[in-house]
Nucleic acid binder design. Structure first.
Lengths: 144, 144, 144, 144
DNA sequence: GTGGTCTAGACCACC
DNA sequence: GTGGTCTAGACCACA
């Protein structure tokens, strides 16, 4: 029980689908170390009840994480995190796709007048919060 | 006439709506200087014909850009770019929202094993290809 | 179900687009308290059927309200009002733009011979029917 | 020549049609006394050349003013203002229609959080600029 | 059930 | 010519 208490919250009024909000929040939890490999997630029923949302919605969120190879689900022990920042680099295809997406997002800010350098600065600040305590150091090598 | 030849392409099979792909590509064109303030876009009909998509779909893409204050449309001269990287900084609300979105995107890469420092590096590389107050430096080669 | 019975009507023969008439009527409903924060709107299909207009037309009206931050839409529960007169003041840019528009409208009446004082009186009478921080006074009878 | 030098300007990038901008600016000029009964307007050709717009566009603007009974056009002396704030009150139908329009506009501000009282205050400030010096006095009777 | 997207084709306003 | 509006009808995603 104590190892599955990751608090996230979803906004039912947001235009972004609830299942994706859930997925995004869990990914962020994995990225910043609140969820680590081996840790188990709350059951779909528990989460659904906690947020007052449909079980299918939670299942869909977990499904996405499973397809991304981030969690694995067994009928016995539920869903557990099987991949986290320390699990090694992803395949090149993912990186290529991700690069394209980040380019689009950066463009949105630059087109509106945010200086390119400032966008990178913001990215740096956000990324710094992901590796945990070691990330604010001089050279963020893998803290493995 | 000769100033509206900005080539982009869209993928009708992608899960991301066509109108948004179009919008994204045009935003990127504005960000990297292929489209500058005062330049006019191809007419909705021309674009629709070129891509084999519906006029309304193109109109919706242009509509989004209009609401973002990036283009202005008149019946006479079609749509022209009215805001570009040199038009000054956007409002704080946009930046705050954008920061949240970029955080989610960065988390996705970090959770999968891309080192935070590398995500920032990629951002830097992409941002370097955009035009901005500081981007007019001596040819942005890969800083690798 | 019982909380979405806000009746408005539209005129298909009017030069003002149907989607905008719908938008205007709903804005008036929000302004005068017939629609309050948290209340949900009829679904696009319901409205479309009721008025004999197209679903897309209603969707466009709702789209406008969404971009103005007045409603929020989710696939599950449809559209709900998220901003009303009690939600705090708008940004300065909006007020400036609105002032210019009201000036033009006032001019139209004055140029035709309505005394300026009377235009303001009419505005006062109309504004009195709206709910606002000060509008909950002792029954806004005509101050004539 | 010296009595037709009313300066207005139009924004070709505005979403509001040029002919209507022209019409609006002229109505404002009549409302605030820069144009009075008997004064003649520049010819359509002169205006068209001055703004680099089409003659037909100017003609359409003048046409609207003519239908509103604000100007009259003779082939001999061109267009002259035939109605201004001192010409007496308009018909009731106009006032009723105008009231509905002003209500819609007021609602837009109120719905977004502008207190009703403040909307009226803004209207008062704008209206004050219309009658000229006499409007800021105690009781703005007709200064006829 | 909900809303979002897209199509094909039509009409109208603007210039 | 341009863009804006509306229709009818279809398909898909969300919950």
């Amino acid at each position: 029980m104590s190892d599955e208490a990751v608090l996230v919250d979803v906004d039912p009024l947001s235009p972004v689908p609830i299942y994706q909000q859930l997925r995004d929040r869990l990914i962020e939890a994995i990225a910043d170390g609140r969820l680590v490999r081996g840790q188990s997630l709350s059951s779909v029923r528990t989460v659904a009840r906690a947020f007052g949302i449909n079980v299918a919605t939670v299942a869909k969120a977990y499904d996405g994480l499973r397809q991304d190879g981030l969690i694995a689900t067994t009928s016995k022990s539920g869903s557990v995190v099987v991949r986290d920042p320390s699990s090694g680099p992803p395949d090149a295809a993912f990186v290529a796709d991700w690069t394209a997406r980040v380019r689009t997002l950066l463009a949105e800010a630059v087109a509106r007048g945010v200086p390119p350098a400032e966008t990178v600065e913001i990215c740096g600040r956000q990324a710094a919060s992901f590796t945990g305590p070691a990330a604010s150091g001089p050279s963020p090598e893998e803290a493995r």
